[in-house]
């Protein structure tokens, strides 16, 4: 039985339970361990990049939607200074999101070199 992000078993997520208001969106969100499992499947099927994506995704599962959307916006061209990108990386690291932190560090360096940081 697969567990949702909240820990609720997928089998307990029924239409009847939804009608009673017992189900929240977190019950039908993916669990980071499930993403890790999918990462292993992707690796076994010749796609380590897809696996890496699932592992970055696993780190984001616990973050609120707005925060995730905010991080995406910060990575868009010209939105952030190099310092801001580095700061995001530190924050992510503090949350245990080391892979995403690495992504932000790379972006900070690449954007600075290519003139894609905020003016």
């Amino acid at each position: 039985m697969t567990q949702g992000f909240s820990g609720k078993d997928s089998g307990d997520v029924t239409v009847a339970a939804i009608r009673q208001g017992d189900i929240t969106i977190d019950d039908v969100r993916i669990h980071p361990e499930t993403l890790e499992h999918q990462a292993q499947v992707a690796e076994q099927h010749g796609n380590p990049q897809l696996a890496a994506n699932f592992r970055r995704a696993a780190e984001l599962t616990s973050m609120p939607d707005e925060y995730v959307l905010g991080l995406y916006d910060a990575l868009r061209p010209g939105r952030s200074t190099q310092e801001q990108l580095t700061k995001h990386a530190e924050e992510l690291e503090a949350r245990g999101a080391v892979r995403n932190a690495e992504l932000f560090r790379q972006a900070a360096s690449a954007y600075a070199r290519r003139g894609l940081t905020a003016k």
């Binding site: 993916i30 970055r56 984001l60 868009r76 972006a107 690449a110 954007y111």
Partner: peptide, 26 residues
């Protein structure tokens, strides 16, 4: 090309992050 990529208001890093954001919600 980088120029058109940036004109599209994204970079490879923002797209990579977006890709993970989708996966993070299954």
């Amino acid at each position: 090309t980088e120029q058109i990529f940036v004109d599209g208001d994204d970079t490879p890093w923002s797209k990579a992050f977006l890709t993970s954001a989708y996966a993070s919600r299954g």
